[in-house]
């Protein structure tokens, strides 16, 4: 059985999940994850469906352990954990496989992800202001020494802020639906 390591940085877990399922559809099954490093084993195409979840506590906490046991007992496999993130897979049996099946729990999860990125984004605002000032000053003085670094910093914070915004919009969209449907 051959293995393959892929280094890739995802900031949006929904895109990450889609990618893992595309890999699985092509027979590459993720078996481990650590910071930006994915390990895949060659398996059978479309055998597994992958899901990613952000927990309330670190995956290693007793409270989270209990949940992970629950998932295993319910026929899922916890493939990897990283801080509060968990990677789960289940044999594709033709039944839909979603971790959340009602609006309230979906909203709670979107909110949790939005908060994670939102807090980071808020903390970065003063630093982004410094970066922007730096870029302006350097352009005026025609020394471009640290412009690339500052621009990269601004772009990164913008991307992560975008994730918070998208998750928050999902919450808003789902809550609007609550006016009509149970």
């Amino acid at each position: 059985m051959s293995e393959r390591v892929v280094w890739k940085a995802y900031y949006d877990f929904e895109n990450e999940e889609r990618w893992l399922n595309e890999m699985a559809a092509n027979g590459w099954e993720m078996i481990d994850y650590s910071w930006c490093r994915y390990t895949f084993a060659e398996g059978l195409p479309k055998r597994y469906t992958y899901r990613i979840q952000l927990l309330e506590d670190a995956a290693s906490s007793p409270k989270s352990r209990e949940y992970l046991d629950f998932l295993e007992d319910a026929g899922m496999e916890v493939v990897a954990t990283y801080r509060r993130w968990i990677y789960i897979r289940k044999i594709a049996d033709g039944q839909p496989f979603d971790l959340f099946s009602d609006r309230d729990s979906r909203v709670a999860h979107h909110r949790r992800v939005a908060a994670l990125f939102g807090v980071f984004f808020a903390a970065q605002i003063p630093l982004v202001v410094v970066s922007i000032k730096n870029v302006i000053t350097q352009i005026q003085e025609r020394v471009f020494f640290s412009v690339p670094l500052s621009v990269a910093h601004i772009a990164l914070v913008g991307l992560l802020g975008g994730v918070a915004l998208r998750q928050y919009l999902s919450v808003r969209w789902l809550e609007k639906d609550a006016l009509v449907h149970e």
Binding site: Q53, F70, A74, M76, Q95, L99, S101, D102, H109
Partner: peptide, 24 residues
């Protein structure tokens, strides 16, 4: 847990499929 998911799925003929996170 798993028994609940199966029971509900069968009772509702697949209309209600509880997600593990939601059920927990």
């Amino acid at each position: 847990g798993y028994g609940i998911m199966q029971y509900v799925r069968e009772m509702t003929e697949g209309r209600v499929v509880l997600g593990a996170g939601t059920l927990y």
